[in-house]
């Protein structure tokens, strides 16, 4: 969907800005808000682009830099921390060979920290895109990543 269609869908009103930016970002293959898109949005909504950048960068769910196909957000809040989120981070780092804020060279995963996913009952927790994974262990993390990679390969094969 084009930027103007997304704006039209929600209504060209600043109150809908977060929703509009969510949709624009979801529609981008690299899961981010591009500079030229923000310029376009600025023209359409008549909001200064600096203001749009300021708003987007305030919220942790938006990114202005390209990200991978799947976004892993590991919770680092105290409840997850005391149940070992650091070990999970280590496992993810080792498995993906990237640090926080980085994207794997194949463009498949971006690793991020998040403040809380609100699923503390099953801490430690991470989310990959819209899915939340709880009661994580090192082994479980690897299995989850394996599964996603496998699905990706299968999907690619089917396309051929």
């Amino acid at each position: 969907m084009t930027v103007s269609r997304i704006v039209e869908k929600h209504g060209n009103n600043r109150e809908n800005l977060l929703q509009i930016m969510h949709d624009i970002q979801d529609a981008a293959t690299d899961r981010c808000l591009h500079r030229d898109v923000l310029d376009e949005l600025s023209d359409i909504m008549n909001i200064p682009v600096a203001d749009l950048v300021g708003t987007a960068t305030f919220y942790s769910m938006f990114s202005l830099t390209p990200r991978g196909r799947h976004i892993i957000r590991l919770c680092e809040s105290p409840p997850c921390y005391i149940l070992g989120s650091d070990n999970i981070l280590e496992a993810l780092r080792e498995r993906l060979d990237i640090g926080i804020g980085e994207t794997t060279p194949d463009g498949l995963f971006t690793l991020e920290h998040t403040s809380c996913l609100g699923a503390c009952g099953v801490a430690p927790v991470m989310s990959i895109d819209d899915e939340v994974y709880g009661n994580l262990t090192t082994g479980k993390v690897n299995a989850i990543i394996d599964q996603i990679v496998e699905n990706q390969i299968a999907a690619a094969r089917n396309r051929k």
């Binding site: 009103n13 600043r14 109150e15 809908n16 800005l17 977060l18 929703q19 930016m21 969510h22 300021g54 708003t55 305030f58 919220y59 942790s60 769910m61 938006f62 998040t114 403040s115 809380c116």
Partner: peptide, 23 residues
């Protein structure tokens, strides 16, 4: 109205700002 990841928006006036599409 759906937020976009900011703990401070739990504060009621920050929440209102966010509902208005601002920081």
């Amino acid at each position: 109205k759906i937020g976009a990841g900011a703990y401070v928006c739990g504060e009621e006036t920050a929440l209102i700002e966010s509902m208005e599409g601002k920081r």
